Amino acid sequence: MKRIISLILVLVLALSLGVGCSQGGNEGEEKAFPYEKTVEIIAPASPGGGWDSTARALQKVIVDNKLAGDVNVVVSNLPGGNGSIAWNGLIDEKNPHKIAMDSSYIYLNSMLGIEGAPSIDDVTPIATLTNEWIGVFVSIDSPYNSINDLFDAVKADVNSVQFVVAPGKGNDDHLATLTTAKAYGIDVTEFDKTIVATDTSEILTGIMGGFYDACFTGALEGLEFVEAGNLKCLGITSNERYEGKFDYIPTIQEQGVDVVFPHWRGLLGAPGMTEEEIAWWNELIEAAIATDDWKEILDNNEWVSYYRNSADTKAMWEEEIVNYESLVEAAGLMVK
């Protein structure tokens, strides 16, 4: 009897030790990312703008198609500093469950002297999502009918054509203007002295009213006035023409000026993200942009798909930043 009781005690002890070891093993195992039940996409601007609308469109596609499984995907807004406030928040928190929308401001801000602006070395590139091409617009009764007409006039007399940008110098519209002038063989430093800045709401009305002669601005913003018969579009910064009703508008490149200039929107994350964490986000985004819902969003907003994964986005940053530094320096906007 004692032997039976002893055997039972041994078995009970062995089972309890086994369960304990098993539980301890589970606790010691590394959990796959995401480690939390909620991930966040931050729009570094107020609701309604390009960053916000892109972030919310991406979130909607992910949620509607159940691409993140049981992980919640939320969007928040944190405006300020051309994105720098949100990006610095990611840097300080170092939370791989949070990513933020970005654009070329990730390198422009520090060049332009935005206080506390991070550099590309301070963050992790996640992806590039969309692009909006830039158009060159003049009034409907302008004597200029091509990029060559326009920049021939500038080359002959740098003060003869009044260019305007909005809302200020240093953004993509301004740098696309300088890039085209540079490619045309014009002294960018002297040319930039003639460019004026105005409020965004006044740039196209100013062209139509005869206050300015030409501007580079978001193509889709200007094309509605082209369709209404108020403006002419002399070219777009794309490498190929639009399809459909605006297919008659040439690219700048096909007019003999070697310029392709995107205005992209993408996503970045905290510094030090692991390959697993980056891969999870890339796989989620790739699944989202492959859906019919995402393609419909692109069509409805007339956005251009410009997807690049983390590695390709990093390569794009490193290539673009060299050109941007040269242009900002030539325009006298570089803050040392």
Score class of each variant (00 low, 15 high):
Met1Gln: 09
Lys2His: 06
Ile4Ser: 10
Ser6Gln: 15
Leu7Met: 14
Leu11Cys: 09
Ala45Gly: 05
Gly49Asn: 15
Ser53Asp: 10
Thr54Val: 07
Ala55Lys: 00
Gln59Arg: 15
Val63Met: 03
Asp64Asn: 13
Leu67Phe: 06
Leu67Ser: 05
Val71Met: 13
Val75Gln: 07
Gly80Cys: 13
Gly80Pro: 09
Gly81Gln: 09
Asn82Glu: 11
Ser84Arg: 00
Gly89Tyr: 01
Gly89Phe: 02
Ile91Asn: 08
Asp92Leu: 08
His97Tyr: 06
Ile99Asn: 01
Tyr107Val: 00
Leu108Tyr: 04
Ser110Met: 01
Gly113Cys: 06
Ala127Trp: 01
Thr128Trp: 05
Leu129His: 04
Thr130Tyr: 00
Glu132Asp: 13
Val138Ile: 14
Phe151Thr: 06
Lys155Ser: 13
Gln162Ala: 13
Ala166Asp: 03
Thr179Met: 15
Asp187Ser: 09
Val188Arg: 01
Thr189Lys: 10
Lys193Tyr: 04
Lys193Ala: 15
Val196Tyr: 10
Thr198Ile: 11
Thr200Leu: 15
Gly206Asn: 02
Ile207Gly: 00
Phe211Lys: 14
Leu223Gly: 10
Leu231Cys: 13
Ser238Pro: 07
Glu243Trp: 02
Ile249Trp: 05
Pro250Leu: 05
Glu254Ile: 08
Pro262His: 05
His263Arg: 05
Glu276Lys: 12
Ile278Cys: 12
Trp280Ala: 00
Ala290Tyr: 05
Lys295Cys: 02
Glu296Thr: 15
Asp299Lys: 11
Val304Arg: 02
Arg308Thr: 03
Asn309Gln: 08
Ala311Gly: 04
Trp317Pro: 00
Glu319Arg: 13
Leu327Ser: 04
Leu327Ala: 06
Gly332Met: 06
Met334Ser: 04
